[in-house]
Amino acid sequence: MPEQDDTEREFDLKWADNAHHKEPSARARMLAARWKDNPPGPQPFRAAPGPTTPRRSSWISTAVVLGSVAAIILLLGYANFRAPY
Rank of each mutant, 00 (worst) to 15 (best):
S25W: 04
S25K: 05
A26W: 07
R27D: 02
R27E: 05
R27G: 00
R27M: 05
A28C: 00
A28K: 03
R29W: 00
R29L: 08
R29A: 01
M30Y: 09
M30H: 06
L31Y: 10
L31K: 13
A32R: 08
A32P: 01
A32F: 02
K36A: 08
K36Q: 04
K36G: 01
K36Y: 01
D37M: 04
N38W: 05
N38V: 07
P39Q: 01
P39D: 01
P39H: 06
P39S: 01
P39E: 00
P40G: 03
P40Q: 08
G41P: 13
G41L: 15
G41D: 15
G41Y: 13
G41Q: 15
G41I: 10
P42Q: 15
P42K: 15
Q43M: 10
Q43Y: 10
Q43N: 07
P44W: 09
P44R: 09
F45C: 05
F45W: 11
F45A: 12
F45T: 11
A47I: 08
P49I: 09
P51S: 12
P51Q: 14
P51I: 12
P51Y: 10
T52R: 15
T52Q: 15
T53S: 09
P54C: 09
R56D: 11
R56E: 10
S57L: 00
S57D: 05
S58D: 15
S58I: 11
W59N: 12
I60Y: 10
I60V: 14
I60N: 11
S61W: 13
S61R: 13
S61Y: 13
A63G: 05
A63Q: 03
A63P: 04
V64E: 10
V64D: 01
V64W: 07
V64I: 14
V64K: 13
L66M: 07
L66R: 03
L66K: 01
L66Y: 00
L66E: 01
G67L: 03
G67N: 00
S68Y: 09
S68Q: 11
S68K: 02
V69E: 00
A70Y: 06
A70D: 03
A70I: 10
A71N: 02
I72R: 02
L74M: 08
L74K: 04
L75C: 06
L76Q: 10
L76T: 09
G77Q: 09
G77C: 07
G77R: 08
Y78Q: 08
Y78L: 15
Y78F: 13
A79T: 04
A79N: 02
